[in-house]
């Protein structure tokens, strides 16, 4: 436990120090990774803790991103706090509506209907005037963080943006930790372990699953919002199944059901992408191979690494 805390503290220090290196490229790259980490953690609540494997989580990401694009005035910066709240709310409400239908099915069917709903959103924004087509929308001004004339930071400054995203990442982590500690969190784990028994013990399982789906969606919307704020641009690909597949891969690489695993997975995923892109234009080949090898030889993900490296204790909790 202590070693775990130490690792966490060191990683946090390291993260906090990134902008000090002075490379705008890496500052922005790690900002992007942290946004993906928030996205991966939001999916972990669904997949790692509730046992619902979604292939449509990008829908919430896209809705969060498009909320900023559509809510922002054309010739003025939007208010960060107002549009952020709107994005989280919009993604949460959309997830509530979609969840109402999808939590009724299980396993591979859940996978398929979540994928189908995400594709519907993709086409909604791709083929109607709502999302202004496949070209997407440019956001001319970054959201303004001012509150009554006071401006605590400027998202146009990449270092400011970096620390803002870092704080949101930490808040998301803390929120999910609290949630998992609560009766709701324990019930979700119970549903993942044995849904049938949860039902027979008196838990309204569908309602709990819907709560998980909605919260995961709201946080996915948060990540999508941050991405739109960082890149100043949205397009329908944000809803694409690639996006859903990638975040699921990050989670699997990092380890399901540990929150920090999702964060580690996001880093490894982007790091490998960068590495192989620098080496070859056919980067997807070694990238795919590396993912296969990681999954085969480290099935529990990066989060299981510390337990594997530690020598087995002579007296585990399994012995009397």
């Amino acid at each position: 436990m202590n070693r775990k805390r130490l690792t966490l503290a060191l990683s946090l220090l390291l993260l906090a120090a990134v902008p000090l290196a002075g490379s705008a490229y890496y500052t922005e790259l790690v900002t992007k990774v942290m946004i993906l980490a928030i996205f991966a953690m939001s999916l972990d609540l669904l997949v790692g803790y509730t046992g619902l494997v979604s292939l449509g989580h990008a829908a919430s990401y896209g809705i969060g991103a498009y909320t900023l694009a559509l809510a922002a005035p054309r010739y003025d910066p939007a208010s960060l706090w107002v549009t952020l709240a709107e994005a989280v709310l919009a993604a949460g409400l959309a997830s509530l509506a979609v969840g109402f239908f999808v939590v009724r099915v299980k396993g591979v069917y859940f996978l398929m209907v979540t994928l189908a709903f995400a594709q519907m959103f993709h086409f909604l924004f791709h083929d109607t005037d709502l999302g202004r087509g496949s070209d997407g929308i440019s956001i001319s001004f970054r959201p303004d963080a001012s509150v009554r004339g006071f401006t605590p930071f400027d998202l146009g400054n990449s270092v400011h943006a970096y620390y803002f995203v870092l704080v949101v990442l930490l808040l998301t982590y803390a929120f999910l930790r609290l949630l998992l500690r609560s009766p709701l969190g324990h019930a979700l784990r119970g549903i993942k372990s044995n849904e049938h028994r949860m039902q027979s013990l008196g838990f309204p399982v569908l309602r709990y699953k819907l709560a998980s789906f909605t919260i995961a969606g709201a946080l996915g919307g948060l990540a999508g919002y941050l991405s739109a704020a960082q890149f100043g641009f949205v397009n329908p690909e944000l809803f694409g199944w690639h996006q859903s597949g990638n975040v699921l891969l990050m989670l699997i690489l990092g380890g399901l059901g540990s929150l920090t695993g999702g964060v580690a997975g996001a880093f490894v995923f982007v790091a490998m992408q960068e590495l192989f892109q620098a080496l070859t234009i056919h980067w997807q080949l070694p990238f795919g191979l590396a993912i296969i090898l990681l999954v085969v030889f480290l099935p529990g993900g990066l989060a299981s690494l510390p337990a594997r490296l530690r020598p087995p204790r002579p007296e585990g909790p399994f012995h009397v």
């Binding site: 609290l178 949630l179 609560s182 009766p183």
Partner: peptide, 8 residues
């Protein structure tokens, strides 16, 4: 059961 900031 919905008080998500309480300790189970």
């Amino acid at each position: 059961p919905w008080r998500i900031f309480s300790d189970a």
